[in-house]
């Protein structure tokens, strides 16, 4: 009921749009922006989710519509779910790993804060990559450097914003932030390893019981 009333409430929408627009402020004023994002509650989870969805849509659109000069997609092997997971899984694992590590070392950010800040930091990726899809169809090989430079800028900008975001969320210095981003990467590796281990073990367990079942059915008939 409350969701429905929220959907029709103009003030809720206005707040959401304002928090989404705040992503552009974060892009150009990263230190101020990411401090106020959580501490002044100027960001919202809804806007964060929106940015992630926008990243996914950007990826899929660029897969389909980027000129063949810059991206050659072998469609028989494209799996949309896989494309989405290739963004979502690293994001989720990074957020978990970062939160897990920083919580142990005086990081001020909560899990929600880390997620929201990371998502807001991805804004330049969307804002640059979307026009780049159009641009790619209007340039030739000679002008390819424009495309590659923009591509690099979008990634470096997003990366830089993640660093700034982590500094402000956890109230760390630059050195400590960089160190903890490295540690987060290590934590991500551990999480991936544990997941693989878990799924292999589950697979083996299931295999054990299915083989018992098969054996019994063979004996009975």
């Amino acid at each position: 009921m409350s969701i429905l009333s929220n959907l029709t409430d103009r003030r809720v929408w206005a707040k959401y749009l304002k928090s989404l627009k705040y992503a552009t402020y974060c892009m150009f004023h990263p230190f101020d922006g990411f401090w106020d994002l959580t501490h002044e509650k100027r960001g919202s989870m809804a806007a964060a989710h929106t940015i992630v969805i926008a990243v996914l849509i950007t990826r899929l659109l660029s897969l389909e519509h980027t000129s063949f000069l810059f991206s050659n997609v072998y469609w028989p092997e494209v799996n949309i779910l896989q494309q989405c997971l290739s963004v979502l899984l690293p994001l989720v694992i990074f957020v978990l790993g970062n939160w897990g590590m920083t919580t142990l070392f005086e990081g001020k950010g909560t899990l929600a804060n880390v997620y929201m800040a990371t998502c807001y930091a991805l804004a330049p990726f969307v804002i640059l990559q979307l026009p780049m899809i159009v641009l790619s169809n209007w340039i030739t090989m000679d002008e390819a450097s424009f495309y590659t430079v923009l591509n690099t800028v979008s990634l470096v900008w997003a990366g830089g914003l993640i660093v700034c975001a982590m500094m402000q969320i956890h109230d760390y210095g630059l050195g400590k932030t960089l160190l903890f981003i490295l540690i987060s990467l290590f934590a991500m590796a551990v999480i991936v390893f544990l997941m693989l281990l878990f799924f292999t073990l589950v697979g083996d367990g299931v295999g054990y019981f299915t083989s018992i079942y098969k054996e019994i059915t063979f004996r009975l008939y």
């Binding site: 063949f68 000069l69 050659n72 209007w138 030739t140 090989m141 000679d142």
Partner: peptide, 18 residues
């Protein structure tokens, strides 16, 4: 050129087309 994915020739043709 696009059908054959020939980027160099495509670029040349596209420059004129553009």
């Amino acid at each position: 050129f696009k059908m054959a994915r020939d980027g160099d020739n495509y670029s040349e043709a596209f420059r004129y087309y553009r």
